[in-house]
């Protein structure tokens, strides 16, 4: 009886040891597919783009397989291109313009929906619709609204005598970028409302009650209670905003295709054109690497900022 127990215990220990080794293998298997996928879908493209940007990788490559190394020539070509500074400026205007208005309007609406009133939950979730629509659907819809001669926007403005002649929203180099930014603001508002609303909902009511005793109501309550408590959510939102907006491509391609007269070209649309219209993959890759580098700089600033906030 005694020996029997002893062997079982020993046996169980041996089993557990084997079990343990088998188990760390199982644990690896849990993450392996995802690791493979992430490497294939992100790691490989980043490395491949770095390599391609150093090669003369063009249409010929697909026939002969030859992609000679050219050093930094692709970078110097795209940077000295006369369109580059325009594309940089447009990217900056597009990103800053979109985010500033998305955030400001989103915050206004989030504060409005914090007032408890009938149907507020339902209205708030229906508000998400523009964000869920395929971007190309939104582009098509806005194309029809902004159409110069028969679009509803110009027809309405003419009827109200706000404009004398139809505005060529998407056909004039001087207003096209503004129109594209406007559409992107419309698309981004719902996301901003949702995140800011959830940030507002986490601020405890007691803070406002205590503030009220000290005379902090209205604007003062916003400035001294709401805003400081919303800073964390706001900074995540703004960082995500930059990272997502800087690479926007669908909306611009759908609305203007970068035109008219390159007035709405950004780094992303330029990169697309170099690779898939001109088939100069090396130059396209160089442009997209510049795009990634800018994204990273913002992310690093953000991470440093939050770390400092945590340290404090």
């Amino acid at each position: 009886m005694v020996t029997l127990t002893r062997t079982t215990v020993a046996g169980r220990e041996k089993v557990r040891g084997r079990h343990h080794r088998g188990e760390s293998l199982t644990k690896v298997l849990f993450v392996l597919p995802a690791v493979v996928a992430m490497v294939a879908l992100f790691g490989y493209p980043v490395v491949k783009n770095l390599l391609m940007s150093l090669q003369d990788y063009g249409l010929k490559t697909f026939f002969t397989g030859a992609a000679p190394w050219v050093g930094l020539k692709n970078y110097s070509t795209v940077v000295t291109d006369k369109l580059f500074s325009d594309a940089m400026l447009n990217t900056a205007l597009f990103t800053v313009g979109s985010i500033a208005f998305q955030f400001a309007i989103g915050l206004g609406l989030a504060l409005f929906f914090r007032n408890r009133f009938p149907l507020s939950g339902l209205l708030r979730s229906l508000l998400l619709l523009p964000w869920l629509l395929p971007l190309i659907v939104s582009s098509a819809t806005w194309r029809s609204i902004l159409e110069q001669d028969s679009g509803i926007l110009n027809r309405t403005l003419l009827k109200l005598h706000l404009i004398g002649d139809p505005v060529p929203w998407l056909n004039s180099p001087s207003v096209a970028l503004i129109a594209v930014i406007g559409v992107n603001i419309w698309i981004g508002i719902p996301f901003n409302v949702t995140l800011l609303y959830s940030g507002l909902a986490e601020i405890p009511d007691e803070l406002y009650e205590a503030g009220q005793l000290d005379g902090a109501t209205g604007w003062r309550a916003f400035w001294y209670i709401t805003w400081p408590n919303l800073r964390a959510v706001a900074s995540v939102l703004l960082m995500l905003g930059v990272v997502y907006t800087i690479k926007v491509l669908d909306i611009i391609l759908g609305l203007t295709g970068g035109g008219p007269a390159n007035a709405t070209q950004t780094l992303a649309t330029q990169s697309y054109e170099k690779s898939f219209v001109d088939f100069r993959f090396g130059q396209g890759a160089a442009l997209s690497n510049i795009l990634i580098a800018i994204s990273f700089v913002f992310a690093i600033f953000y991470l440093r900022g939050t770390r400092r906030a945590v340290d404090e």
Partner: peptide, 18 residues
């Protein structure tokens, strides 16, 4: 987190050639 910063066009470039 970093993967969210990679523009789709980078993925498209590489996947096209592959």
């Amino acid at each position: 987190l970093i993967s969210q910063m990679i523009p789709g066009i980078v993925i498209a470039n590489a996947l096209y050639t592959a």
